[in-house]
């Protein structure tokens, strides 16, 4: 192999490296970074969410049994990448994606309002304004995603009632979703919900963290 030849670097060479390096470096780092960080910018800078900030119908209050919780499945529309609303309108043969959440509902301390028993299975007449307020105050609308690491929480029937149990690491919650034991840092998350006069429970894809903290978007699902 030939001997190495080490020429000195002139001021012009140095300047050339600086200018060209900056141009190439900037073009090859900034657009790619923005390209892949897009969703983070959308969420944190523009305050956007993949799930629209709307009410979605979960189920009828009469479906919530008096003695145990009931899981409703809500399919939230998911505006993510090729499932964004504009892409679906203008794109080819597109199907809207949904994010399905299992939502645990129960009556607080298993004490349903009196009118629920009278309602029976009849869902047509709707309920009165007073009954709406009564039902709204008596409901638990809980996220099935464990507050520890997000596993699907199940209802475990026991002799003295029952408890919510997370199958992953054994987090335990009571009928109201309050923390009982295990590694979770808090009780089950509660959805922002409302009961309307048609007798149905409506939820938003956000958690009501209570007090002055207001609401927060769910992690992960």
């Amino acid at each position: 192999m030939a001997e190495l030849q080490k020429d000195p670097m002139t001021r012009g060479d140095f300047l050339g490296f600086g200018v060209l390096g900056t141009i190439v470096g900037a073009l090859l780092t900034i657009p790619p970074a923005a390209f892949i960080l897009g969703p983070v910018i959308d969420v944190n800078v523009r305050g956007e969410s993949d799930v629209p900030d709307d009410w979605f119908r979960a189920g009828h209050v009469s479906e919530v049994p008096p003695d145990e919780p009931k899981a409703f499945v809500v399919a939230f529309p998911l505006n993510q990448v090729y499932s964004e609303r504009q892409v679906i309108e203008e794109g080819v043969d597109t199907q809207e994606q949904t994010l399905r959440n299992a939502i645990w509902t129960s009556w607080k301390d298993l004490k349903p309002p009196g009118f629920i028993a009278e309602l029976g299975q009849n869902r047509t007449p709707g309920i009165s304004r007073e009954q709406v307020i009564e039902a709204q105050g008596a409901l638990n609308v809980l996220s099935s995603s464990c507050a520890h690491l997000g596993c699907p929480v199940r209802w475990l029937v026991k002799e003295d009632g029952g408890e919510f149990l997370c199958p992953c690491h054994g987090g335990i919650y009571d009928i109201n979703g309050a923390y009982v034991g295990g590694p979770p840092p808090r009780g089950m998350y509660r959805y922002t919900y409302e009961v309307r006069e048609d007798g149905y429970i409506y939820v938003k894809h956000e958690f009501d963290v209570g007090g002055d903290k207001g609401s927060q978007k769910p992690f992960v699902i």
């Binding site: 899981a71 499945v73 809500v74 399919a75 994010l99 399905r100 959440n101 299992a102 645990w104 099935s144 596993c151 699907p152 929480v153 199940r154 209802w155 199958p167 992953c168 699902i221």
Partner: peptide, 9 residues
């Protein structure tokens, strides 16, 4: 299925 309540991860 993100809406399962029976699956054990």
């Amino acid at each position: 299925d993100t809406a399962t309540i029976t699956y054990v991860p």
